[in-house]
Write a protein that binds this DNA or RNA. Structure first.
Lengths: 232, 232
DNA sequence: TGACACAATATGTAGCTACATATTACGAAT
DNA sequence: ATTCGTAATATGTAGCTACATATTGTGTCA
């Protein structure tokens, strides 16, 4: 870090302190960038970078011409990294295993249609599979793939290759949504994951699109004890 | 967006496409910024911004002198917004309610010590409370506050004021960690949340620090059906 | 051979200018 | 009074230069 110059991180902390100390409360308008630049004796670009970062963190809101305001409702903004299951398992020293359970072409359920925002339901490929760590069930994956968007999926040998990794390589997405919730293991899930029926399990649901076309939606039901951690 | 000039977002997409198309695979080294700037006929600062964004998204890794590499393990990086419970409830048109259930000064459990990384356990303030939406239980909060870091907490009337909101105003944190998992409702939890014993519930655990000093750790157990969504 | 100092190098940051863009504010016209 | 076009304005972005910093690589000396 330089000595005599202001760093944008220092500027960010200074402004953040103003907000934390209550000098600028929720909803208050902050001075415009050029004014702060003058006041803090630095370039507007430095202020801009600091402000952008505070905006990304959900602390302030900026609008052209409207100016910069402290967010009315403070919030905690966290970043989560969701790795490919194989890497997650191997990363902690486990032996990755994979098992295809079901693969059927059929019309999507209402829930799947809703998750992907599909107007005209066409046949999709449903794939149920199990990821194992050292031979023990790790996550149970229930996936629906759009045949229209990804026709090549029908040619893939899913008994050997994992649909998730194939899709990542062959059908990159431009947008995605995630959803987390808890559910009680039903009979089938309990059997496949080798847990007691009724166990509380964490479900991670993901939907992906390329532009506006739906690619896939997948619900990964994790084995008991699974925890999702925020980054750093 | 300007016409004749390259935007950093366009540059980002172009580089991203190289990666998606396999032109640069996992672990591959990308040309240095100045080279790309020449190649794409734009300023290095534009490349820098694009690269920074790709780096933030977890797609590439940059190291000074080491250069820029495509990440070996692709991952999904998501951003979550966790609002203050009151705002969350009011934001969806509900009537917010609050109820203090327990408030005791006592030594922390091993789990709490571990969560906050405390070396020498001292008495903390344990606060159990319930957040309600339209009179129905919404989340059950089990909180431990460091009396050493936040002595003023002892003077607060927690039957009227919510510890979370008081802490946000009076003990701003510099670092936090989040953890999500599923659990089965035990007898006490089931009663307080008015759900059947054994119901699967989503737990959101948060720990906060100011510099290295622990402030608080809180486990929010949400009512059934609660879903956590990734931002935009 | 090994340790250590130092040069080389790619990214990171600050400052400047110029222009783009979104949105508010205002004034004219109906 | 309401609608609409236009000017004013604060933020957003691109390009340039200069320098900082981290890390790799290399050469020197014991």
């Amino acid at each position: 870090m330089q000595q005599g110059r202001q760093t944008w991180k220092a500027v960010r902390e200074r402004i953040h302190d103003w907000i934390l100390s209550g000098r600028y409360g929720p909803g208050d308008k902050l001075p415009k960038d050029s004014e702060l630049a003058l006041q803090m004796d630095c370039a507007r670009s430095t202020i801009q970078r600091a402000m952008q970062d505070l905006s990304d963190s959900g602390i302030i809101e900026r609008r052209r011409k409207g100016g910069t305001h402290v967010r009315k409702n403070p919030l905690v903004r966290a970043t989560l990294d969701i790795p490919v299951t194989r890497h997650e398992i191997e990363g902690r020293g486990g032996q990755y295993g994979y098992q295809l359970i079901e693969k059927v072409q059929r019309p999507p359920t209402r829930a799947v249609q809703a998750a992907l925002g599909m107007a005209e339901p066409q046949d999709m490929l449903q794939i149920v599979c199990l990821h194992l760590s050292d031979g023990r069930p790790y996550t149970l994956e229930n996936r629906w793939v759009s045949i229209e968007t990804v026709p090549d999926i029908l040619q893939v040998d899913l008994t050997r290759e994992n649909a998730n990794e194939w899709l990542l390589k062959n059908a990159p997405y431009t947008r995605f949504e995630l959803k987390f919730y808890a559910l009680n293991a039903d009979e089938k899930t309990a059997e496949l994951l080798s847990v007691q029926q009724g166990s509380a399990l964490l479900a991670i649901e993901r939907a992906t699109w390329v532009d506006e076309a739906a690619i896939t939606t997948v619900t990964a039901i994790t084995a008991p004890g699974y925890q999702l951690l925020s980054r750093s």
